[in-house]
Design a protein around this nucleic acid. Structure first.
Length: 880
RNA sequence: GGGAGUUUAGCUCAGCUGGUUCAGAGCAUCUGCCUUACAAGCAGAGGGUCACUGGUUCGAACCCAGUAACUCCCACCA
């Protein structure tokens, strides 16, 4: 069979994914093994895979595959999120493109469309994850609006309401006029926006005086109900208590004084519009000011504005400035940059708006969630996010959970039409609840709350509800088997952007409903950026299509590309060359496989060099197994990968295979081949979590496998002790080989020409264990040892070992001398610094014994080296 | 406005409780090689005042203070 020189992932990856699926490799059921659980951060149901997902899910798959191979019962639960506002916006747009306005539809009609949209587009993203190799238990796929998942959300709402943690109230909330819904504080993004600050004169009642205020939002003056100045501001002291007229409408409003006002800003006088600004609202409450709501929910002026009714707020802003100029109220305007809140989803400018909404009290729930992170029950990786988390949890505000949308869980509150309501799961229960209050209603008389719940109000239950949606108010003994077995989950992998939206709230819900934190480790990924440092996004068009990348480099190549340079919490500056590097690596493994599959086996004696190489690589492999284990425990996944990359490419391919490689068309001895295959298999196991497809492919080629057995189900190499001395000794041999090769390079000696390397006598024992390897890889004749430098030879110092190589007649004495002198100067300086320490009483008194000992060793090493160098230099001088 | 973080080779990053055999890795670069596993490769090499300034110490990339630049988070400045 001819094996191609280049590995082609294309058909191979689909083949293995299908076989894994068909064999049920991804499935998990509770059993007596230790569980290892990850729940996927559910992507938006109608979303498309982007680079952020690629990074995130690659990491999850690495963790879950490794755990599975460590004998744990690994369960990765996939699913999607209904993403109420994002999905509803998409459906609205789609309908609009068909000439249908949402407002012309009933709730039921709209939801029909939304579900159709979900059926059509939902699941695309999950299929894309399969291309990546994600080993999710697909039988467990959940959707946050599955009937049972939604029921859990409603149960929690009702329960929290009962506990007094959910309440309804009038608050200043963030209003998105284009989506026509309230948003939580977290969904508002403040952007620096060039604006104009308008100075507007208000005339004072019964006076010829006026007072000038500064505002960026002149359209709201129609809702002004006061002017506020600082109580100690002498400029205005005499005006406090008087009335002024609101321009254009000539309504009289008072001048009040409060310390909130910043005397330095603008004119030091502030217009107060309680309906349209959070601070003004607070002032309004304090001074008992009326609230005039001049902007309607769709962003146009309301009837209460009296003027410009029905016109858009931004058009009115322009118009009112003109009109104020005409009416002689406009003093001036200046350009400023201010921060304007935008909707995360629709990007429209947020309108602070007073409205009746539902909230979750955060204070009590935040405390244990904060403790959980402080005491390490939940570990954040990297730990720097602990500070951010703390800060947020200590200053958390109540969470506005009602959304004026249709796509989502409708709030289970029932209104009697006379200002009273009850919270109940069904209309029947609501009627019953009212009757307890002495009010009697029959079916159809109550009206359910029109609003739905914030998406995060369902996803905060995700780690619980994916296993048992009927967990509310049940003791652990009544949980179903899945929840008891898989919960709490082990790792959560997500973006820092949703640390507060989601992670913090899951911790709260977990503690509230299970008494346990929902996961023990949170791996926070960075943001995937382009070469210019911009976040990859659809709107910028700077993101490659992940599926294209997979076609080009293979899923294995892309997975490596995602992980090669992305320590936890660090942004990933993505470049396709990373995937190329991954692909190249896979090709390297492929060719290692080609090499050993091409050998003919014979029952011949095992060469000494092979014995030595096997000995060394065995230790080196054990060292790396330990290293990888430690790195995983610290969630330093890219470093673990890099360790294996070097182990495979450098140690295994470049050194080990070269050392055991038989001469051209010569057979290999059976023992060496078997050892080599065993080592290769260990490497494949270690690499499998990172590059599952190619490793599975080669593993099956490497030996006969019993049907139905897979590398992905095999066991990871176990950590064991190793002999670090052997590794060090081999390292020195490597350095000697490199020095010889460099010598050849410099002197233009072909690698094919065998050289006579002569060792200084004291180096003999250092090299002894690996002499055969040294001779083979350096292409050297059998080593000789001497105590004196042979005439007319080059000297090589490798560490403290001294070597000589025969010189041809064109030896450049001056260059050699220069090199030696350079090294001599360095070594003398080094010795000086060592001596300085050893002669320093305070060093000798304070430093640890190991440090002192190592310094003494350094001293004697350096002295010997200097002697050797001086000796050399002397000989060279004699030759002159 | 408050808080956190970062600054080490051209790029992306390691450097744990201070000890000059710790200044590292990968990629990129340069040189030489189409050597019968792999040019998606092989062999070698070069490259850094560890942001800056002071301090502590026998000794500082590492500890302290200040400066500068950048990043992120939170916040109601009209």
């Amino acid at each position: 069979m001819e094996i191609p020189k280049q590995y082609t992932p294309l058909g191979t990856e689909d083949k293995w994914y299908k076989r894994w699926m068909d064999s049920g490799c991804f499935k998990s059921q509770p059993d007596n093994r230790e569980p290892f659980t990850i729940v996927i951060p559910p992507p938006n149901v109608t979303g498309v895979l982007h680079m952020g997902h690629m990074l995130n899910n690659t990491i999850q798959d690495v963790l879950i595959r490794r755990a599975r191979m460590q004998g744990k019962n690994a369960c990765w639960v996939p699913g999607t999120d209904h993403a109420s506002i994002a999905t509803e916006a998409k459906v609205v747009n789609k309908l609009r493109s068909e000439g249908i306005e949402k407002s012309s539809l009933t709730r039921e009609q709209f939801l029909d469309h939304a579900w159709q949209w979900k059926e059509k587009h939902g699941g695309i993203i999950l299929d894309q994850l399969k291309k990546l190799g994600a080993s999710c238990d697909w039988d467990r796929t959940k959707f946050t609006m599955d009937p049972d998942m939604s029921e859990a959300v409603i149960d929690v709402f009702i329960d929290l309401h009962k506990k007094g943690l959910v309440y309804r109230g009038v608050r200043m909330i963030n209003w998105d006029p284009s989506a026509q819904t309230a948003l939580s504080d977290e969904e508002v993004i403040f952007k620096e926006t060039p604006s104009k600050l308008y100075y507007i004169k208000y005339f004072i009642e019964d006076s010829s005086e006026s007072i000038t205020i500064a505002t960026t939002r002149p359209e709201t003056i129609l809702g002004d109900t006061a002017i506020c100045v600082h109580p100690e501001d002498e400029r205005y002291a005499h005006l406090v208590g008087k009335n002024v007229f609101v321009p254009l409408v000539n309504r009289a409003i008072p001048i009040i004084a409060d310390e909130y006002v910043d005397r330095e800003f603008g004119t030091g006088a502030l217009k107060v519009t309680p309906a349209h600004d959070v601070n003004d609202y607070m002032l309004g409450i304090k001074f008992n000011l009326p609230v005039i709501d001049v902007i309607a929910s769709n962003g146009t002026m309301s009837n209460a504005a009296q003027l410009y009714i029905g016109q858009d707020r931004f058009a009115v802003r322009k118009q009112i400035v003109k009109d104020l100029e005409t009416s002689n109220n406009l003093v001036k305007s200046e350009d400023i940059i201010n921060k304007v809140g935008h909707s995360e989803r629709t990007d429209s400018v947020i309108e602070p708006r007073l409205s009746l909404q539902w909230f979750v009290k955060m204070g009590e729930m935040a405390k244990p969630a904060l403790d959980a992170v402080n005491n390490g029950s939940v570990k954040l990786h990297p730990a720097k996010f602990v500070n951010t988390y703390k800060h947020w949890m200590e200053n958390v505000k109540d969470w506005c959970i009602s959304r004026q949308l249709w796509w989502g869980q409708q709030i289970p509150a029932w209104y009697d039409g006379q200002g009273d309501f009850v919270v109940a799961k069904t209309e029947q229960e609501a009627i019953a609840a009212f009757s307890e209050k002495g009010k009697s209603f029959s079916t159809g008389q109550l009206k359910q709350d029109e609003d739905v719940l914030d998406t995060w109000f369902s996803s905060w239950l995700w780690p619980i509800s994916v296993f048992d949606p009927q967990f509310v108010n049940k003791p652990k003994s009544e949980w179903n088997e899945d929840l008891r077995y898989y919960y709490p989950t082990h790792d959560l992998v997500t973006a820092p952007e949703i640390l507060f939206f989601w992670v913090a709230r899951m911790i709260m819900a977990g503690i509230e409903y299970t008494g346990e934190v929902p996961f023990s480790n949170v791996y926070l990924t960075g943001i995937v950026r382009d070469k210019l440092g911009r976040k990859m996004s659809k709107s910028l068009g700077n993101s490659p299509d992940p599926i294209d990348l997979i076609h080009k480099y293979g899923a294995d190549g892309v997975r490596m590309g995602m992980l090669l340079t992305s320590p936890a919490g660090n942004d990933l500056p993505f470049d396709e060359s990373l995937c190329e590097q991954g692909r190249n690596f896979n090709n390297k493994i492929w060719n290692a496989f080609r090499l050993l599959s091409g050998w003919e086996v014979a029952d011949i004696e095992q060469p000494e060099s092979s014995k030595q190489a096997i000995h060394w690589f065995g230790e080196r492999l054990k060292e790396e197994v330990k290293n990888v284990e430690e790195l995983f425990q610290k969630y330093r996944i890219s470093e673990a990968l890099m360790g294996l990359y070097k182990l495979t490419w450098d140690d295994f391919c470049a050194w080990y295979l070269e050392a055991i490689k038989p001469a051209y068309q010569q057979p290999i001895d059976r023992k060496t081949l078997n050892e080599t295959k065993a080592y290769f298999e260990e490497l494949l196991k270690l690499l499998h979590p990172f590059t599952p497809f190619i490793t599975e492919e080669i593993w099956h080629f490497l030996s006969e496998r019993t049907p139905g057995s897979y590398l992905m189900m095999d066991a990871q190499p176990k950590v064991s002790s190793f002999d670090s001395q052997v590794i060090q000794e081999f390292e020195q041999v490597r350095n000697v080989v490199a020095a010889v090769r460099n010598f050849r390079n410099e002197k233009g000696i072909s690698p094919k020409e065998t050289l006579d390397l002569i060792c200084g006598s004291r180096t003999q024992q250092n090299l002894l264990p690996f002499t055969a390897v040294l001779e083979k890889l350096g292409n050297l004749s059998p080593l000789n040892y001497v105590s004196e430098k042979p005439q007319g030879s080059f000297q090589l110092m490798v560490g403290n070992d001294e070597f000589f190589l025969p010189a041809n007649e064109t030896m450049d004495l001056e260059a050699e001398k220069e090199k030696l002198e350079k090294e001599l100067t360095y070594t003398r300086g080094f010795l000086d610094s060592v001596l300085k320490k050893l002669q320093n009483e305070r060093f000798m008194a304070n430093a640890k014994k190991e440090v002192v000992d190592s310094e003494k060793q350094k001293e004697s090493d350096a002295i010997q080296k200097i002697q050797a160098l001086e000796n050399q230099l002397m000989l060279l001088n004699e030759m002159n």
